[in-house]
Design a protein around this nucleic acid. Structure first.
Lengths: 199, 199, 199, 199
DNA sequence: GATGAATGAGGATTCATTCAT
DNA sequence: TATGAATGAATCCTCATTCAT
C-alpha cells in the first residue's frame, strides 16, 4: 500500500478501497476497471482514492502482493510437517484448487499482472518456484524423492498445478472433485507416465 | 480475418497489417498498442485498417488464431512418426522452447488473450490439450505409456511445458539450452520424481 | 442529377442509385445514410457513385428536386378544372394526405432538406406557396373566395396542410381517414372557427 | 439534463455549456456542431462536457426541452385571461413571431429535433397542440368559437402559425410587421376565406 | 481526510472521396 | 463505365489524475 493511513477512519477507507478493487479488477480486469467505479463500489469520493494510492497501477500492485500472499498462506495452512513430501504436494495442490475455485478473481488478478505489472508477476511465481524447490530438496533429503531435482522440476511442477487449476478450478465444468484431480496429478508427479518396468 | 481481400493488392496490405500488428502487440501489449502505430508500421493509411478489420479486438482475435496455428505447426514439424511416444514429447517441448525463444511476441499475444479475448485463449489451450491427450493415448497404445491417462494428465503435461517455456525460453537467463531443459522435463514426465523402488 | 449517363447501362445504374438513395435517406436520414450503404442497396460498386454524382449533397439535392416534383404532380392529378376552388383545396389536401401516407420517406427527405440543403427546402415551399396563392386568386376571381387574399394566407393554408399531414398521415394512429381530415380542414379554411353571426 | 451538479460551481458550468450549445447548434446545426467547439465557447475543458452530459445527443435533448419550455413561456406571458379567445390566438401568434425573430436558433433547434431526437420533436408539438385544443374548447365555451372544434383544428391552427413563422419571422424579408401578419392570420382563422354569405 | 468538479491527452472509429486497374 | 482498395481528416468519448473547497 502506498500511503499508510494514520487514523482509524483512514484505515477503514483503505480497506473498503482494497475490497472494492479486488471485486472490480476480478470482474472486469485491469483495463476495464475504472477508479471511479472502484470508489463508487467502496462508497467513497473519487478524490479519496489518491489519498491512499499514487495511481491505478500502484493499487494493482498492492493488490497482487496481497493476493500472492493469500495464495501462499492458503497453501501453508493446508500442509503439515507430519505429511510425507508427496502428501505435501498433493495437499498443496488440493488446497490450491479449492482456493482457486473460491477465489477466481484472485487467480485472474495475479495472472493479469503478467501484462500490467510484470515484475509482480515474476516475483509471485519465482517465489513459489523457490518454495517448491525447497520442498523438493526436502523430499530428496527425506529419501522419498530422487536426487537431482532442481529449478526445472520446480517450474514444471508449478506449471502442472497452475494449468490443472485453470482447467478444473477456474473453468470448472466436468464432475471431478479437487481431490480426484490432485490425486491424479500427484501420482503422475511421483511416477511419471511411462509404463512400469520401462525407460 | 474479417473482410477477405478480393485483389492481390488487398492481400498484400492485409499481410502487412498482420505482421505489423504482431510486432506492435508483441512489444507493447494489446492496450498500449494503437491502431495508428500499427498502420504506421505497416506503411498504410490509418483508414486502411478498417478495410480489413472491424476493430482492434477483431484484429487481435485474427492474430491469436494465426499464432495458435503457428505454434501447432511448429510442434508438428518437430516430430515424426518414427519417434517413440516419449521422444515425441521431448521433441515437441524442445521445439516449443525454440519457437518461444524465437517468437517471444507470440507467447505474449496468446497469453494476453486470456484477458482480451478469453474464448480464443480457451480455444487455443483446449485444442492443444486434446492433441496431447491423443498423443498420450497413442503412447499407451504403443505400450510405452501406462494406461489410464486422460484429460488431467494432458493439462498437467501442457502446464509443465508452458511454465518451463515461460521461465527458460521467455525470461531466459541461466545457461540451460532448450535441449537440456527438454531432457530434464522429459525424464520427469516419464518417471516422476519419486525415488525408484518406492511409492 | 449531376452527370447525365450516355448509355442505356448508365441510365439503369443511375436509376438504381436514385431508388436506393430514396430508401436509404428515407429510412436513416441524411447523416446516418452512407454512400456505401446506398451503393450496396443499389448493387453497384462504391466508386460508381461518383460517376453519377459529385457528392452526397448533390445526390440529396437531386432527390429533393425529384420528390418535390412528385408531390406537385400528385396534387395536380388530384384536382380538375371542373372543381370549385374550395373543392380543389379539399382534394389537394386529401391527395397530399394519401401521398404522404404512401410515401412517408418523401416527406422526411424534403423536411430534412431544411438542414441539409436549405435552398432546396425554401424553393420547395416557396413554389408551393406560389401555386396556392394562384389558386386563392382564382377562387377570388371565381367569386367563391373573398378578396384580399395573399401570401400570408397561402403560407397559413400550406402550414395547415403540412401539419395535419404530419399528424395524421405520417404519424398516423387515430382512426381518421384522409377524407375526414380533409373535410374538417376544408370547412375550417372556408368558414373559420368563429361562431356564425359573430366577429 | 443528465447529471445534476451538486455544487454552485457545477451549476454555473452547466449553464455555460447549455448557452454555448444553444449558440453552436443554432448556428451550425446538430451535425456540424462539435463538442469541442461548444466547450471552447463555454470556456471549459473538453472533458467537462461529459461531467454533465452523456453524449452530444443527450445535450441536444436537454436543450430541446429547455427551448420547448421557453416557447411556451413566451406564449403564456403574451396572453391574459382578460383577452377574448380570438385575441388570445392573435396575441399568441404575434408573440411567437416576435420570439422566433429574436431567437431564430430556437426555432432551428426544435425543428432539427425531428431528425435528431424525434420523440422530443413529437412531444413538443403534441404538447402545444393540446394547449391549443384547450384554448379552442374554452373559446367554444365562451361562445366565441363554434362548436365541434377538436384535434384536427388544433393541428391546422398550429401549422398556420408555424409556417407563417417560418416565412415571416425566420426567413423574414418583406416589410410586414408581426402584428400585421398576426392580424391577417387571425382574421383568416376566425372567418375563413370563403366569400361572406356563402358556403 | 473527504469531496467532486475540472482537466486534457489519447485513441478508436467513420466515411466521403480519390484513384489505379 | 465499373470496381473496390486506399486515404486521412474529423470527432466523439474515456478516464486517470489534479485541485480548490
Amino acid at each position: 500500500m502506498d500511503k499508510t493511513p494514520r487514523t482509524e477512519r483512514g484505515r477503514k477507507t483503505l480497506r473498503k478501497l482494497l475490497d472494492a478493487a479486488a471485486d472490480e479488477f476480478g470482474e472486469r480486469g485491469f483495463h476495464e476497471a475504472s477508479i471511479s467505479s472502484i470508489t463508487r463500489r467502496a462508497g467513497v469520493a473519487l478524490g479519496s482514492f489518491y489519498t491512499y494510492f499514487d495511481s491505478k497501477e500502484a493499487l494493482f500492485q498492492a493488490l497482487v502482493a496481497d493476493m500472492s500472499e493469500a495464495v501462499k498462506v492458503s497453501a501453508r495452512k493446508a500442509i503439515s510437517p507430519a505429511m510425507s513430501p508427496l502428501e505435501i504436494e498433493r495437499a498443496a495442490l488440493a488446497a490450491f484448487l479449492d482456493f482457486s475455485t473460491e477465489h477466481k478473481e484472485i487467480y485472474r488478478i495475479i495472472d493479469e499482472a503478467e501484462f500490467v505489472d510484470p515484475s509482480s508477476y515474476r516475483e509471485h511465481y519465482e517465489t513459489i518456484a523457490k518454495l517448491i524447490e525447497q520442498r523438493l530438496a526436502a523430499g530428496t533429503e527425506a529419501g522419498e524423492f530422487r536426487t537431482g531435482l532442481g529449478e526445472v522440476h520446480a517450474w514444471a511442477l508449478m506449471g502442472m498445478n497452475v494449468f490443472v487449476g485453470l482447467r478444473f478450478a477456474i473453468w470448472g465444468e466436468g464432475n471431478r472433485t479437487p481431490e480426484d484431480v490432485a490425486a491424479i496429478v500427484n501420482d503422475m508427479l511421483a511416477n511419471g507416465i511411462a509404463r512400469k518396468g520401462q525407460s
